[in-house]
């Protein structure tokens, strides 16, 4: 994954960058499988590696596929990125170890979900039960986000097709 990111940063051919983004998503999906988060891995593989790569290619075909080079110095941004990275890593030092049974996340509501969700919702997949029932409002919000994205795209560029002969100026 680190090698993928290195080439994403270094390459100027955006087509290759989009492809590497898809590869990165696939690698992230395998990582989620290793962490036993099958539902997340499934979403990452389908959305990250599949659809978003196609949509990025679609967006790319409307612009150029070569990144413009910037002559300005990259030292100051690099300094900030390194500092922020160190701050983030420093922040993880206080986190409980992975799989630690007394970590707060395993003490709060997760045991209730695991114990009660089958009896209360009769849905064996706990992820689905939490997503759709316990956290129904959040999922409704996510759907509305996707809805808004679709409406936005339709409003912005959805009607260009209707006038194929007309010259589109001012774009």
């Amino acid at each position: 994954m680190a090698a993928t990111i290195y080439f994403v940063v270094r390459l100027h051919n955006l087509l290759a960058v989009v492809m590497l983004g898809g590869i990165y998503s696939l690698l992230a999906a395998t990582m989620f499988v290793v962490l036993d988060a099958v539902d997340v891995a499934f979403t990452e593989a389908a959305v990250g590696a599949g659809i978003s790569t196609v949509l990025m290619l679609g967006a790319l075909s409307m612009t150029t596929s070569v990144e413009k080079t910037d002559a300005r110095s990259t030292l100051l941004p690099l300094l900030f990125v390194v500092l922020a990275g160190f701050a983030l890593i420093y922040g993880t030092l206080d986190m409980p170890h992975y799989g630690d049974p007394i970590a707060p996340i395993h003490q709060h509501v997760a045991p209730t979900y695991l114990a009660d969700s089958l009896a209360k919702t009769s849905v064996p997949n706990v992820v689905t039960a939490v997503l759709a029932s316990y956290r129904g409002y959040d999922t409704l919000g996510e759907v509305v986000v996707i809805f808004t994205a679709g409406v936005g795209v339709v409003l912005l560029i959805g009607r260009g097709r209707r006038r194929p002969g007309r010259k589109r100026d001012g774009e």
Partner: peptide, 20 residues
Amino acid sequence: VGMTVASVMATIFLAFAGRN
């Protein structure tokens, strides 16, 4: 959820592909 997601993805693709 499935209906909205499928429709949005298809619509976005058609909108991009229909332009060029």
